[in-house]
Amino acid sequence: MGERIQTGFFVLLLLAHLALLSQGSSAKGSRFEGYLLAVFGPLVGAVDSTVDRTSRAASDLRFASDLRRDNAALREEVEVLRREVVRLQGVEEELERLSRLAGYSRLATGDNFVADVVYVDPDSWLRTLVLHTGPERAETNQPVVVDRGLVGRILVSSGSYAKVLLLTDRSAAASAMIQRTRRKGIVRGAGDHLRLENIPALSDVRVGDLVVTAGLDGVFPRGLPIGRVTSVQSSQFDDAPADSLFRRITVAPAADLGLLDQVYVLTRSPLPEEVKQDLATDRLEQETEDPS
């Protein structure tokens, strides 16, 4: 092919491109662009999907190494916990033996079942929950706990659903004690925290002390963690009355009540029905004698 003809073709090629350019985004140009995309689009798509798959495989590999590390850590933890279980079984057996020798009858620890949190009452802002208990039936006043500590008690139960009154509710209370000193008081809900009341002004209380249930209210068994002391105000220095005999103590709940997905309901009935009925009869008689 002669050089002139070649140059002519070349100029034609350039003019064709200029024509395409001048068409801009017209239908013809778009159709041509569409053909090109139909040819090369799958290639770009294949590259994209390959890169995606590769990066996903890489992240899966990273995840697998994380899993291996977590698995190793959990295995170690299981070993430690198994040793702890063996030790506690020994302690339990020893306690049983000593209780028998001393003629002491311990309260049965009871059983528990898992329930899902299905509803949070927005009006009371995390102070009441609704549980789905499944085939199990919850009863009024049964304690509700999580692994970190006490959550509250069953307020109303209907079929496979139950309403829980959280310990932080202002109407909730439980007998409690400071674990370190065994000093007993009453824990009351105060919205987002708890107040420990009836602790004498001269008693030894420190920030960080663990507060557990005292088991004296007929609802909660003894020893369930309630929370830790976050502030202690002695009556002489704070806004409490100068002649106050009790300290003002604030407690942070041990269980994070904003993160509840599943809880345990303790099925042990804390007080026998006969005792409950006797107490109710006594209260009724007291009210009829003293109507004020």
Partner: peptide, 14 residues
């Protein structure tokens, strides 16, 4: 190149 970059068709072609 024009088709894949979404620019004006014919720009890179020219």
């Amino acid at each position: 190149h024009d088709a894949l970059t979404g620019g004006r068709l014919g720009l890179y072609g020219f």
